[in-house]
Design a protein around this nucleic acid. Structure first.
Lengths: 146, 146
DNA sequence: GCAGATTCGTTGCATGTGTAATAGTTGGAT
DNA sequence: ATCCAACTATTACACATGCAACGAATCTGC
């Protein structure tokens, strides 16, 4: 038949990507969830503020591609728990500047260290494979789409 | 400082994996959603039944790693829309055998063709990179976790 | 100045999700 | 035979999600 093409679900890139992403996400999730009671979006917002300093919600959206409602809700929870502060921009009173508190920075540094170790462990697990090529390909796949 | 380690969120493997997976999933989603009104989990169940024939919900869970409630709900919707039939196992009346209808098989063949083309397009986009190595690494990452 | 379009961020709503509890069935130990 | 543990699949519930609508503030063209 014409459609007895070689097609294996286990080799289909979107499927493989999802499996790998979900596995590593669930695995790493236990860290920030267990230590700080954070959810995935809160961890992401925390990391952006930790890496780039003071940002608005829109800045974070542009950099991360996260949906604005996810950011809004993550910021709300992070503020309640005193991981960040919100300061209204007096030049443009629609915008709010977000900045980590000392507690937020401490959590960021702690989690960053763990993330780095975890990343190293993944790279080591891949052994003699070309991890740099993997990152390069993932980046292209992430940036590519319509 | 000790924690001025080189750490870049954009290179963090779980983050990159998520970005790439979400991008390709959203992109491919438009196909099965647009053509058959299917959701992601329904597409996955359909593919498993299309590739491996008659299976129970537990079989699909073991092969796919999908959560059992996702499978239960996907099967429900696929059955309502006449993509599959459910047959109680008379030897073990807890289990149900799931099988694609002619309509389900037609949808599967159609989507499989599109999936293959899409996969080929992704591979071509990665150009001279080693796509086989990419699949190998993703598979190891997916299988590895705790 | 002013009206309409645009932007920032939040919220209402319908839908999707995982955890835990459930009903029904089977298998195993005594 | 009977009781209890294990298994299959579904459902209830609380929570996360994305879309659309929204209020407030700003910008644009005139």
């Amino acid at each position: 038949m014409a459609d007895q093409d070689t097609f294996d679900l286990q080799s289909f890139l979107p499927y493989l990507l999802n499996q790998a992403a979900e596995a590593s996400s669930l695995d790493f999730q236990s860290v920030y969830k267990g230590r700080y009671g954070m959810l995935r979006n809160e961890w992401r917002v925390l990391f952006h503020l930790g890496m780039y300093g003071r940002l608005t919600a829109s800045d974070i959206r542009d950099r991360s591609g996260l949906h604005k409602t996810k950011i809004s809700r993550a910021v709300q929870r992070l503020a309640e728990r005193r991981f960040l502060t919100r300061v209204r921009d007096e030049q443009d009173r629609r915008a709010e500047h977000l900045e980590l508190t000392a507690q937020g920075q401490a959590a960021y540094r702690d989690l960053r260290k763990i993330a780095k170790d975890y990343d190293d462990a993944l790279a080591e697990m891949l052994g003699d494979e070309d991890v740099a090529a993997l990152r390069r390909m993932l980046l292209r796949l992430a940036q590519r789409v319509s």
